[in-house]
Design a binder for these strands. Structure first.
Length: 777
DNA sequence: GATATGTTTTTTTTT
DNA sequence: AAAACATATC
């Protein structure tokens, strides 16, 4: 295999050591993907049947790319690899074996929205306080449990978990868990976590199944091992039990999914569980320039929990990391957009070589606007995926019900969409009846006559609906996915409805459905996976299509039209990717590191690893930015620079930006207001001056604008309406004490008292009905 | 039962 | 600021 000549010594060893357990610790940009692809190709060249190789990746896109690269070396055989995400590979196996667990083999995969909707119904039926029992909170508890292989029964028996719930005032979670699981089971549905939990149950409860798959998979490979959780690790250990040819690739410094149960314990346990383990370290970075690699090392050495390793590079020189201090979130966006425009021209780059990375999805909006103003094409990844949009999900719900009518969540979505006179009252009756008889909702829809207390007209409408669904189901045998979908769109009047709506949103909805139908068509004519002789195939092509899209992420999009665009995504989503020029934005305390993760050292270290991942995405240019003011929930907040900026050594970074926050007189023009200024600040002379140190925005600074002034407070001894909303964290101006920040507010009614910290006199307690206060907006 | 209007909540990260 | 949610009105 001539490709082996391209590898350095440790890469070569990592590729060619194909017997026994292997762990590859791979630093960023160290050729990890290349090692994985060559290793798989090498296995195939050494007469390992691709059907015997299971390769688990983090995204479907990573799997697809790897498969493509492997097929360049070994040819079409690559299509037979069991390669994909944990969830998609396990779903494929579960589908073949589902009947053993009492699930239909065309089971539905519930997405998190479906799950929360199920929980919401249960919480409501149980008459629990929905302020305390929020679906998202309950779902998180259930999900975390499942990722530690704890089912509803074990949960109820687990003293720690139950007492946690009791002390948080939610003792009923264990019951909700059981009810939820039961409801999903009746609907023939698994959630994402079930794909792991049920996989584990399948292998542990049925020795013959375990034996079968242990025999089948002679070689197992796992990418991004640092981000696997307890459940995933346990399952892999079972699969690998026979041959023990298991190869894991990971980097503890890039572990960023602890919140989802991932643990680097897996890396440590691996050494313990496989004493024969051979470990290879890939430490040479081929991706980034020296400044970037040094900065990454600067950052990560602030973490205590690290495996020892030293990343180094031969790529000398390169530009320093630029740090922009900007006045506001909108300013930040404009400056970044201008810088992209300028950098592209100056260095002859393509738009696709740029990425803007942020901590939270909500940050994308301002960049979207700024890029649009400069006519820079962009694509936002993550956030609401295509398949989560209402109109798309409604349409897909039809397909789901056709494949699996017991899918209650889908059924509820479409039973009166488009409107067919089955209103909320009727739906509630249906659900109540289903629960009373302990039957799936669909059974009652099929036989509305068992419902008490319903008008015959309503029953007839329900009957009509069920007849329509059955007529769709009849098509499953003879028609392909596209034919069925198209027929449903026409028959239900759904396409017609959307077509009639000529509002901009309506047009976009119509286009989305067209796109969905095109996607289904592509799938239908596209290459279908091969199956082994003894393997259970999906019942039909619509079911196979649904399985595929239910596990697709937004990152998996590979449309040509997105190839030439600036990419916007969260840092989590950027894992495993690389770009010539990277902008990491919103580097502010409480945003990055997130305010949610400043409580424990472990959480903070994960944020730091996240920053490490972000930095190391960059090949040549790296730009960091932060804003001094930022809107959150429509409220202005003052921000200070992230500690992470300080952790980069001075010799690797250059500061740009204003010394003081914006003065009110300059409010209409920002510091880098127009193109003239943009050129100026990017010019060589300016770059040489390292003027600015990041300085905290002090609360003595003049406020940006004082649009709303609480004059009422001066008038008399009652709390003005503006001050009624006063809460901790707000900035105010006092007649005598000047600017201050609200520490806390106590008491009620006329006697509300605020504790306010004033720069001039320190903490003061002030009765609001007498306060001469203005809220700074 | 559908639509208009007001109120409350949301933001960590994702397969 | 926007979306989700709840309530009022036709």
């Amino acid at each position: 295999m001539r490709e082996l000549a391209e590898l350095n010594e440790s890469q070569f060893n990592a590729v060619t050591t194909i017997h026994g357990p292997v762990m590859i610790i791979a630093g960023p940009g160290s050729g990890k993907t290349r090692v994985l692809t060559y290793r798989i190709a090498y296995l195939i060249k050494n007469n390992v049947d691709p059907f015997r190789i299971m390769a688990l990746t983090f995204t479907n896109k990573a799997a697809a790319e790897m498969r493509e690269r492997i097929s360049h070396i070994v040819g079409h055989e690559a299509r037979n690899l069991y390669m994909g995400t944990f969830h998609s590979v396990f779903a494929r196996i579960l589908r073949a074996e589902a009947h053993r667990m009492g699930y239909p083999n065309n089971f539905t995969i519930y997405d998190p929205d479906d799950c929360k909707s199920v929980l919401k119904s249960i919480i409501k039926e149980e008459g629990l306080n929905d302020k305390l029992y929020k679906p998202a909170t309950v779902f998180y508890r259930i999900s975390s449990a499942k990722n530690s292989l704890i089912d509803a029964k074990k949960y109820a028996e687990n003293i720690d978990l139950v007492s946690d719930d009791e002390s948080s005032g939610r003792p009923k979670i264990k019951e909700l868990f059981a009810k939820y699981q039961d409801r999903c089971f009746k609907s023939g549905a698994m959630d994402f976590d079930d794909l792991l939990l049920k996989m584990y149950e399948l292998l542990t409860k049925f020795p013959d199944v375990l034996y079968k798959y242990q025999q089948r998979f002679t070689h197992i490979l796992i990418d991004e091992f640092q981000d696997t959780n307890n459940a995933q690790y346990s399952i892999v250990k079972l699969f690998a039990g026979q041959h023990e040819n298991v190869c894991v690739v990971g980097d503890d410094a890039q572990s960023i999914y602890a919140f989802r149960g991932a643990t680097i314990e897996n890396i440590l346990n691996f050494e313990r569980d496989y004493p024969d383990l051979k470990v290879f370290k890939l430490e040479q970075n081929y991706r980034s320039t020296e400044h970037i690699v040094s900065a990454a090392n600067d950052i990560i050495k602030h973490n205590k929990a690290q495996l020892p390793k030293q990343i180094w590079t031969d790529n000398k020189g390169g530009e320093k990391i630029k740090v922009y201090k900007t006045a506001s979130d909108t300013d930040e966006a404009r400056i970044v957009a201008n810088a992209i425009f300028d950098q592209k021209m100056r260095n002859h780059l393509m738009h696709s070589e740029f990425a803007i990375l942020y901590r939270t999805n909500a940050q994308s909006r301002s960049f979207e606007e700024a890029l649009r103003k400069l006519n820079i094409p962009y694509k936002i990844y993550g956030g609401l995926s295509f398949y989560q949009r209402k109109e798309v999900k409604d349409f897909i719900s039809y397909l789901r019900v056709v494949v699996n009518p017991n899918d209650e969540e889908a059924l509820k979505r479409i039973i009166n969409y488009p409107v067919r006179g089955i209103g909320n009252t009727s739906i509630d009756r249906l659900i109540v009846t289903a629960n009373e008889h302990d039957l799936p909702l669909w059974h009652v829809v099929e036989k509305p006559e068992i419902i008490n207390d319903m008008q015959s007209r309503a029953k007839q409408l329900i009957r009509d609906f069920s007849i329509m669904i059955k007529s769709f189901r009849a098509m499953l045998a003879g028609k392909n996915a596209y034919e069925i979908a198209e027929y449903i769109g026409k028959q239900t009047g759904l396409i017609q409805d959307l077509y009639k709506d000529k509002t901009p949103e309506g047009i976009s909805r119509f286009e989305n459905i067209q796109e969905l139908l095109n996607g289904i068509k592509e799938y239908t004519v596209g290459e279908q996976p091969e199956y082994e002789e003894d393997e259970v195939r999906p019942e039909n092509d619509l079911a196979a299509y649904l399985q595929q899209i239910s596990l697709l992420t937004d990152m998996d999009d590979s449309k040509d039209e997105n190839k030439e665009k600036v990419k916007l995504m969260t840092i989590h989503a950027a894992k495993g990717l690389e770009f010539t020029s990277v902008f990491i934005v919103g580097l502010e305390e409480n945003l990055f590191p997130s305010i949610m993760s400043m409580n424990t050292r472990e959480d903070l270290e994960e944020e730091r690893r996240l920053f490490y991942v972000a930095i190391t995405r960059s090949k040549r240019f790296l730009t960091l930015s932060y804003a001094l003011t930022r809107y959150k929930f429509g409220q202005l907040n003052y921000c200070e620079a992230s500690r992470f900026i300080d952790e980069i050594a001075e010799e690797n970074k250059t500061f740009f930006g204003q010394k003081e926050p914006q003065k009110p007189k300059a409010e209409q023009k920002s510091f880098f207001g127009d193109d003239e200024n943009t050129k100026w600040y990017l010019s060589k002379q300016y770059q040489k001056k390292q003027i600015i140190e990041p300085s905290k925005p002090e609360i003595t600074e003049p406020p940006k604008n004082l649009t709303k002034i609480n004059t009422a407070a001066k008038a008399g001894a009652s709390i003005s309406s503006d001050l009624k909303d006063l809460e901790a964290g707000m900035h105010v101006i006092h007649e005598k004490f000047n600017q201050g920040k609200v520490i806390s507010v106590e008491g009620g009614g006329e006697n509300r008292i605020a504790t306010i910290y004033f720069e001039t006199v320190g903490n003061k307690k002030i009765m609001l009905k007498f306060a001469k206060l203005q809220i700074v907006e």
